[in-house]
Nucleic acid binder design. Sequence first.
DNA 1: TAAGTAAGTGTTAAGTTACCACTAAGAAAG
DNA 2: CTTTCTTAGTGGTAACTTAACACTTACTTA
Lengths: 244, 244
Amino acid sequence: MTNKDEAAFIAAYNIHDYDVPLTTVDVVVFSVLSEQLHVQLVRRGQHPYRDCWALPGGFIHIHQDDDLEATARRILTTKTGVGTPYLEQLGAFGNRDRDPRGWAATFVYFALINSASSGEQPLNGRWWPVEENAVTPPLAFDHAELLAAALGRLRSKVTYTSLPMHLLPERFTLSQCQRVFEIVLGHPLEKSAFRRRLLDADLIERIDGAFERGSNRPAALFRLRPGAETVFFPGVLRTGQTNG
Amino acid sequence: MTNKDEAAFIAAYNIHDYDVPLTTVDVVVFSVLSEQLHVQLVRRGQHPYRDCWALPGGFIHIHQDDDLEATARRILTTKTGVGTPYLEQLGAFGNRDRDPRGWAATFVYFALINSASSGEQPLNGRWWPVEENAVTPPLAFDHAELLAAALGRLRSKVTYTSLPMHLLPERFTLSQCQRVFEIVLGHPLEKSAFRRRLLDADLIERIDGAFERGSNRPAALFRLRPGAETVFFPGVLRTGQTNG
DNA sequence: TAAGTAAGTGTTAAGTTACCACTAAGAAAG
DNA sequence: CTTTCTTAGTGGTAACTTAACACTTACTTA
């Protein structure tokens, strides 16, 4: 009886009867290109903010997307053409003023991809270098704020998780890894301590026999240990001003 | 001209033309009562899940609420009657299946209130003790998952921030503070180290001349330093099995 | 074969932390 | 009015961690 009740209630429920907020998903994609942190932006083809640069974003398609993360991935694929990166939810922003069309909420995702994959850049996206806390072009909506929030998250997480590992190509040397941490962090690190901690953290594993060769001693190649995705590790504690 | 264009576009935009997800806000409110972590639940008066226990939640009222946090506060006030607590966004959950009415997304907030304020409990809310990762009654929707996520956040943040300070009354002793950390954390802490760190962190200040008296040496009273809300501090590092 | 360069390792002083033992101040019991 | 009990609060040290820097290794280039 209650079940019948409930079924009737649900059948009668029509979301179009209510004034609901607009809901979108925006994605902040970071990559490290030529020794600098970059973020992926797209040029808006439609109103509002037509021709403005913006974070890749779009509406939730309830018939197509199974969940919020699916929306984020669809947007990433269709708007920027970048592959399947590391993806985590950053948070949500919603208020009356951020979109001229009305009360709007956005689910913001945070993505990291390695420089190898970031090469494929077919669509209307473009990599913009991140200076301090912003990017050169003015951004649509409140996207400058969203970007700042994402940067905050990234910079904070460097200090206590292995997050930036996802900015590295599949095979990497310890020095490349240290370099990426330094770029995200904004200051140099001490080699010996960095290596010891990274190896102790059991995050990565040697690729047998593989080396990167240059005009110097060949560097051993490593890869992320499958399974050990993003992990708490006090990877990067203090400064480290020197280098040997 | 572009502006005219844009104005026309916006005027013509009608959200009722689109199939959009349902959007709600849910709040996970924690408090420490009689030496145990508790969470506030309400009994649902309507379908779906009528008569089931659920997290306090509700729809965004776009004509009434300025932003997501305003929705959270309104829900807290009208559904549970608890005051203005510490409030932070936990994250968002959205997919096709979590609500029988259709594709639904919820913005989940995370609140802490002190045992003093948690006494006022006029409406249909009730405090339920949290055992391990759950609560006795079965919960509506995917609220058990949301609760688990909130617990994860709380327990993780204890170890590196001053978050649990918000579970304390306005005036508290250092021992009370330690006790709250221990309850959230689930294991005892070492007194001497805890005190030293807490005082070094510059989070709290002595209330001059105020003491809590019992049948023993009076304990000095402290309060949260205004401004120093939630702060990174490695308050609680290791076990501390003993006590002097 | 010497010079240059980046990879990779070892050592130690300075700084932290965990742990335990101690003193202090009141109430209650005898 | 002295002893006992209880919780508040302090001090010291051994074990461990970290920062800093010097060193060795392996390869290329001239």
